[in-house]
């Protein structure tokens, strides 16, 4: 478990889910920023030194895939983890992000994957 207090950005339109995820990540020792839609998320992403993004796929307006590709354009080195309630997202979406997982797979897996991502992110230039 990383305890380096990475700054994570969570984007999800589900308020309850977002709150719980924030709590979870904070408990895991991360600092967490939240956004309820893609546009707000992008603004925060550009403005703050975010180290990783946990992104919901299904959102009104702009879906996770679109948000991810815009984020890649801005800061390509930041790892993105895409969460979705759907199974079988199109490859053009999953190929943009570093990791993709289905909601409900459980908190340990999420934390583990996020940890791996951050390690890779840190080890990357």
């Amino acid at each position: 478990m990383a305890k380096k207090s990475h700054l994570i950005l969570c984007v999800d339109d589900e308020l309850v889910g977002l709150r719980v995820r924030k709590l979870l990540l904070e408990r895991a020792g991360y600092r967490v920023l939240t956004a309820l839609d893609g546009n707000t998320g992008l603004e925060i992403f550009k403005a703050e030194p975010v180290e990783a993004v946990v992104l919901d796929y299904s959102m009104p307006g702009m879906h996770g895939g679109e948000v991810a590709s815009l984020m890649r354009q801005a800061k390509p080195e930041i790892p993105i983890l895409l969460l979705s309630a759907y199974i079988g997202l199109p490859t053009e979406v999953t190929s943009v992000v570093n990791l993709y997982m289905t909601k409900g797979e459980g908190a340990p897996l999420l934390l583990k994957k996020l940890g791996t991502l951050l390690e890779h992110g840190v080890s990357a230039p």
Binding site: V16, G17, V20, L23, K103, G104, G106, A107, L110
Partner: peptide, 8 residues
């Protein structure tokens, strides 16, 4: 979505 929250 709710299941994710509950499991978390």
């Amino acid at each position: 979505n709710p299941l994710d929250s509950v499991s978390n």
